[in-house]
Simulated assay, not measured.
Amino acid sequence: MTAATAPPPAMTSVRGGGTGASEADLLAEVVGLVGKDLAACERLYAEELASSHPAVRDVRDHVAKYRGKRLRPILTLLAGAACGGVNAKHHTLAAVVEMVHAATLVHDDVLDGADVRRHVATVHSRWNPRTAVLFGDFLFTHAFHLAATVDAAACRAIGAATNAVCEGELTQIHERGNVDLTEAEYFRIVAGKTAALTAVSAELGAVHAGADAATAAALRGYGEDLGVAFQIADDLLDLVGEEGCVGKTLGSDLVEKKLTLPIIRLRDRLPHGKVQELKALLADPTADARDRLLPLLKQTGALESAAATARERAAAAIARLDVLPDSPAKGLLERLARFSVRRGS
């Protein structure tokens, strides 16, 4: 299926596959409220990425198969609807944030050595790492080309968010193998690599609906908290999910020696002797590292502790919406926050 013919966004199950009843209801309400706007975003996305080169079209059409939930464009459109109404600028910006996100996915799969995303081969595994890196760059350059058609401020905001994403990823790479990574350092990485883009998606939705500075800041904060909650849930899935359901390579964080919140909390809850054993495993992970750690993660409460933090950040995101009047769009933003953490339940 090509980008030009892709249907409205499909939200995956909280466990990564299939469609549960509450999820289907949420998707139906999103489409009912902003479905035409999502379709307009998809058209712009496809038009911007049109190419006369068959090799480029092949990769573009392949990436369309795993673009996923369209969370970031949905945030832009719902924030716009909640703050006064959606217009053509929202359609463009929704396409832009989705391009930036798709680019990070293509590059992340190279960095993580992941072979599968959403049940299909990653670009680097189907073609090669050079193709993946260049196609990710292709998506980035088209995103900024399209953002420039809105205004300079929007382009700068997207640029700042993309810079933060790259800084977060670079910091994470630098910290790989650091078995003493602190929670503060973990949250600093997540604020960049994940939350920066969800934050700007919601903020731009508010700004281009005419929201005042305080409301736009609240929507930005909502996006930040949502992004952190979403990432923690993703980290939990990497440890407890089932690859056949989640649709991507699992256990990659351990293989890549990246400390995530559940692992940090496990380390900090173990007695000294066990901590040294854990650090030795994290420094040189074996193929069965995930299976070996799961009992400890459960026994120490590290999994539940991390899940509780994700729920707290989702609740904080919802609280930021108090600046908005009640509306269907506000209600959907609240439900999206709750949905983000139920993925790992």
Rank of each mutant, 00 (worst) to 15 (best):
R118F: 02
F138H: 15
L77E: 07
A114T: 07
R117H: 06
A160E: 15
G80L: 07
A79H: 05
A82L: 07
K89G: 11
M99N: 01
W127M: 02
T92P: 01
A82G: 05
A103G: 11
V63G: 01
A121W: 00
H107C: 06
H107N: 08
V120I: 10
P73T: 09
N163W: 14
A88H: 13
H90Y: 07
C155E: 12
A94G: 12
P129M: 08
V63C: 11
M99D: 05
A132L: 04
W127P: 00
L111Q: 14
G136H: 08
A79Y: 04
T149D: 13
H119S: 12
A95S: 14
R70H: 11
T149R: 14
H119F: 12
A50V: 14
V116W: 04
S52V: 15
V97G: 03
A103P: 01
T131G: 05
H62T: 09
W127I: 02
D61G: 04
V150Y: 09
V63H: 03
L75C: 01
N87E: 12
H91P: 04
H53T: 15
H145L: 14
A160P: 02
T122A: 00
G85S: 11
S51T: 15
G85D: 12
L49A: 05
T131S: 12
H90R: 08
W127Y: 12
V133Y: 08
C83K: 02
V97T: 13
K89P: 00
A164F: 09
H145M: 11
H101G: 04
E169G: 10
C83F: 06
K65A: 15
H142W: 06
F140Q: 09
P54D: 13
A50R: 15
L93P: 00
F140G: 01
I74Y: 00
P73A: 10
T162I: 08
A161G: 10
K69F: 01
V63A: 06
H124K: 04
L139I: 10
V96S: 05
P129S: 12
R67N: 09
K89N: 15
A55K: 13
G168N: 11
I158K: 05
D112A: 06
I74E: 03
V56I: 15
E167D: 15
G85I: 09
F140N: 07
H62C: 08
A121Y: 00
D115I: 03
G80T: 07
D151I: 11
D61W: 07
V123N: 00
A55N: 11
H90I: 06
T131K: 09
V97H: 05
A160F: 12
A55T: 13
V123R: 02
A164T: 07
C155M: 14
G113H: 01
V97F: 09
A132S: 09
A55D: 15
F138G: 04
G68D: 04
L75P: 00
D61P: 09
L105W: 04
V106L: 08
T141H: 11
A121C: 08
H142N: 15
R57H: 10
R156K: 13
V150D: 05
A148V: 12
V133N: 03
T141S: 15
E167Q: 14
D61K: 06
L49N: 02
L170G: 13
D109C: 02
G84C: 10
D151T: 11
V116H: 02
H62I: 03
I158Y: 05
L49W: 04
V116G: 01
R156I: 13
V150I: 10
G113F: 00
G68M: 09
